[in-house]
Design a protein around this nucleic acid. Structure first.
Lengths: 210, 210
DNA sequence: TTCTTCATGTAATTAGTTACATGATTGA
DNA sequence: TCAATCATGTAACTAATTACATGAAGAA
């Protein structure tokens, strides 16, 4: 059982799905916190069946069949047990930021372009997220009855995208002050001090935003 | 050439390293934006040598040897070329948030514990980050002369950890209002509206913080 | 001198991805 | 009726991980 297996099990706890429907639903719901290729989502439910956590039923459409998976009581119990276990914190993979970490090995315009791309990434993702948030605010979101649960993830991304955009704006300001060869850039001591100051929040209280 | 290959190439552009030193340096510097197992960092430099982007030199310590890798001019050119290419935006993997996405399938206390764990994750990571930021602010950070470049990543994490902590605080408040069985929780319409409002920032201006 | 940690590396395994293949459905 | 898209699945490949092994150095 990997995290992916539990992710699929969680979806099945909401309702039965066919493999294809699972891939679509995964894309819409968990895709941003647990991204996996389509083909994996055809494999995982088979494991669940082998473990007795789901049952498979073949339906026929014309000359081809599709498999619909349904969670079992043992499956629900396994899911509930997993929810009691400690999970991993956020793991990030951020290629653009790797590129920026070596900006001094390239041209200034490359860094500026990469920062602009990150900003634009945040805008686009936020636009999709905002549209869905608006749906839920109107009471018309998918699985609206689960909104008390799913809003936790929605709010996380609302904040995450805004944070990335703010950071990109700041990073752009910084990079624009660089000389043509970023290797010659000298860090502004005031900025370094400001970063340290913002990092020095008290664990006992909520850190300030913006 | 994968992202990992370029990450190693980037480190070699700063100075020569042995494989083991690469693993340590990776852990310290890129570990949070490009996390990879130690064993990969023993493989990647071999690829670089095969491609002519690095040279390997064996040093002897007692009865065993270690391999020190040095970037070549072709390697520097390949790195500079990579910096001109568009990179991927942030990819997140967040198991705790997957668990919270199915909080209605478990007990309220499990959700509260998971949220607390996320908060604590942010505190701990921030503490390490803050210590390093403080070093740089005093002008005593590792590779201080590269600070104009590396502060971009440092600032990103300062904001990221603060954001996660703020989100966890908010999520905890929400979950505490739930009934004992989270499946019976009803989303507060005011909260849903607030999430949508915060997501509705204008792409032309920097989104508000906090 | 022994134990622990640092340092260096390989082997075995697997989770995951990319690419491919093809039937069903819909709309122009 | 043809093209495009939706839907369903498998096969081949690989990037990456876990586990293991062992020498060197430092501390007790």
């Amino acid at each position: 059982m990997t995290g992916t297996t539990y992710a699929v099990l969680g979806l099945l706890a909401v309702q039965p799905w066919s493999s294809y429907e699972l891939t679509r639903q995964m894309e819409r719901s968990l895709g941003r916190i647990w991204p996996r290729a389509q083909s994996r989502l055809y494999e995982e439910p088979k494991k669940l069946v082998a473990l007795g956590f789901a049952t498979a039923e073949d339906e026929v459409t014309g000359r081809r069949t599709r498999t619909v998976y349904t969670i079992t009581e043992e499956g629900r119990a396994a899911l509930a047990r997993w929810l009691t276990e400690p999970g991993e914190g956020p793991v990030l993979e951020f290629e653009q930021l790797v590129q920026l970490s070596f900006a001094d090995q390239g041209a200034k315009r490359d860094a500026l372009r990469t920062i602009a791309a990150a900003r634009s990434w945040a805008e686009q993702r936020n636009a999709e997220n905002a549209a869905v948030a608006e749906l839920y605010a109107r009471g018309e979101g998918p699985f609206q009855y689960r909104a008390a649960t799913t809003m936790l993830a929605g709010a996380f991304f609302t904040e995450f995208y805004a944070m990335v955009a703010r950071w990109a704006d700041w990073a752009g300001e910084q990079a624009r002050t660089w000389p043509d060869d970023p290797a010659d850039a000298v860090a502004d001591p005031a900025q370094l001090a400001e970063i340290a100051r913002r990092a020095a929040w008290d664990p006992g209280s909520s850190p300030a935003g913006g």
